[in-house]
Simulated assay, not measured.
Amino acid sequence: MTDTTPLFSVPARGVGLIEFNRPTGANRIEVSDLRVLHDLISAWESDQQAHVLIFAARGRHFCSGFDLRALLAEARSGEGGAADGSGGFETLANRIEGTRLITIAAIGGPVMGGGTDLALACDFRLGTPRAYMQMPAAQFGLPLYSGALQRYVSRLGLNWAKYLILSASRANADEMVQMGFLGRLVEADDLNDECLRLATELASMPGKPMSAMKQGLNAAAVGNGNSDCIRKLLGGAFDGNIISSRIARARTNRSNQRRGYHD
């Protein structure tokens, strides 16, 4: 462990928080961080009370992606040339996309390179007016890995994906909202509170159906949403007892509200 190791905390019941912790290096992800991040995600997934995971960052940047020095070392040694560090960074992004947890990216500043893919792998993305994004891989002659290409297209659409990746253009916060990269903008001082409010609301819902629907939506984005495995997953998340109790609770709450009572 070092003083730049990603940090983990539990700010609310059922809500985990991972913070990138290399502010003087634009919160780039180094090789040593990959295992730490996988371990943090695994540990939180294994907690049956865990439903939501927020990704945030210390300092001005959200994340600048994978350490390019590791890629250069691979290329010079003749061991690689992939844009994800022998699959490690892509595997991390795929892991974030595929986790049963509902994920939120709190983007308070610039997000660059592979950091944009980590954000796109999350289910929700909130940002501030200070945020901007750029994918500079084309400028460096660096072929972007396939998982990132798929997420860019499935989240933003083909036209935006081509514009951002092939021209390496920078997009400001308003453009990030317009293209769907950010769900909404909040003031910088409110970002953490807004992400925690959303996370707490999500964590209050039954986790298994939420996770199943997340997997179904992600599959639908790439044309696999009607597959047998997704149908089985959704069917397995159906629990009549939970549904009945939640409906009864909602009716009771509505009745109390009409009478002027509150929980």
Rank of each mutant, 00 (worst) to 15 (best):
K214W: 02
M1L: 15
H38L: 11
L217Y: 08
T2N: 13
S77E: 14
G207I: 01
F55T: 03
A161M: 06
S32M: 11
A199M: 03
I29W: 06
Q150D: 08
L142S: 06
G113W: 10
R95T: 13
R249Q: 14
D190G: 07
L191C: 04
M133L: 14
G98Y: 06
D239M: 02
R28L: 13
S167Y: 08
L158H: 12
E74T: 10
N218F: 09
F55D: 01
A73I: 11
A121P: 00
A83E: 15
S167N: 12
F20D: 06
L126Y: 10
L68E: 13
V36T: 15
L156E: 02
A119L: 02
R246K: 05
L126S: 02
N192P: 03
A199V: 00
G87H: 10
H38S: 12
M112W: 14
L185W: 08
I41C: 03
R76S: 13
T4I: 09
S86C: 13
L185K: 03
D47C: 10
G65K: 05
A161Q: 02
G80A: 12
N192F: 12
I29H: 03
L72M: 13
S77I: 10
K208Q: 09
V186L: 07
M112V: 10
K232V: 07
S86D: 13
N224P: 00
R69V: 09
F55L: 11
A70D: 14
P11A: 10
G141Q: 06
E175R: 15
T128Q: 01
A137T: 11
N253M: 12
D228A: 15
R246P: 00
A106F: 05
A171S: 12
A131P: 01
L17Q: 10
D193C: 10
R13A: 12
K232R: 15
N94M: 13
L53W: 08
D263P: 11
I18K: 07
R22V: 02
Y163W: 13
Q257D: 11
S32Q: 15
A237N: 01
T252K: 14
G240V: 13
R251Q: 14
P136A: 03
F55A: 02
R170P: 00
A56Y: 05
G183P: 00
